[in-house]
C-alpha cells in the first residue's frame, strides 16, 4: 500500500481551526425530541415500579424468568406465559466506577453503574442500575444489594423510582 502512495489523503484539523474560524463550517442543532411508547411489557414494569415492586416475566417453555419484562421470549419466540413479582434485592454481576459524563466532562462524584442480578429472576439475569451508600473501593462482584426506593409520593413510574441499590448490611 505504501509503495504506490506517497501521501495519503485526509486533512486533519485542530479544534482551534474552528474556534479561530480558519476553516469554513456551518452548525445545526436538530430538535430531536421523542415520546417513546412504553409498550405493554415496559408499561406494566413502570406501573409496578410506581408501586414499589419489580416485576418480571416467565417463559414456561424455556424455564426462565427475565427482567426487564417483555411480551415475547426471544429464545423460543412464543408469548411469555406469566407475570412474576421479583424481589427488590439481588447480587452485583459487574460494576464500573465512572468519572465522566457522556460529553466527557468530569463528574464531581463518581457514579457506580452496575448490572444487578435480581432475586427471583433466573441466574445471570439482571438490570442496569446504580449503586449508592457505598465506598467505591468496597464494591465487589457478588456483593448483595437491595433497592433504595423513593418515597411513594415521589414515584412516577420510572426506573429512577429506585434511587439506587445499596449493600445489604
Amino acid at each position: 500500500m505504501t509503495a504506490k502512495i506517497k501521501e495519503f489523503p485526509g486533512v486533519g484539523l485542530r479544534e482551534s481551526d474552528f474556534t479561530e474560524r480558519k476553516v469554513l463550517f456551518t452548525e445545526w442543532k436538530p430538535d430531536a425530541r421523542y415520546a417513546w411508547d412504553a409498550g405493554v411489557a415496559i408499561g406494566r414494569y413502570l406501573a409496578e415500579l410506581k408501586e414499589g415492586r419489580i416485576i418480571g416475566v416467565r417463559c414456561h417453555h424455556c424455564r426462565r424468568t427475565v427482567v426487564p419484562p417483555r411480551i415475547f421470549c426471544e429464545w423460543c419466540f412464543r408469548p411469555m406465559d406469566e407475570w412474576v413479582y421479583l424481589e427488590d434485592h439481588g447480587v452485583v454481576n459487574t460494576f464500573s466506577i465512572c468519572y465522566v459524563q457522556w460529553d466527557m466532562e468530569r463528574l464531581e462524584e463518581p457514579l457506580i453503574p452496575a448490572v444487578i442480578e435480581i432475586a427471583g429472576a433466573s441466574k445471570g439475569v439482571g438490570i442496569l442500575h446504580l449503586l449508592g451508600e457505598v465506598d467505591p473501593r468496597e464494591v465487589k462482584i457478588g456483593m448483595k444489594v437491595k433497592a433504595v426506593w423513593k418515597p411513594a409520593a415521589e414515584r412516577i413510574g420510572a426506573i429512577t423510582d429506585i434511587r439506587y441499590f445499596k449493600p445489604i448490611n
Partner: peptide, 10 residues
C-alpha cells in the same frame, strides 16, 4: 430509552 437512559449512562 425508558429503562436505562434515565439513569444517565454514557
Amino acid at each position: 430509552h425508558t429503562t436505562e437512559r434515565p439513569l444517565g449512562p454514557n
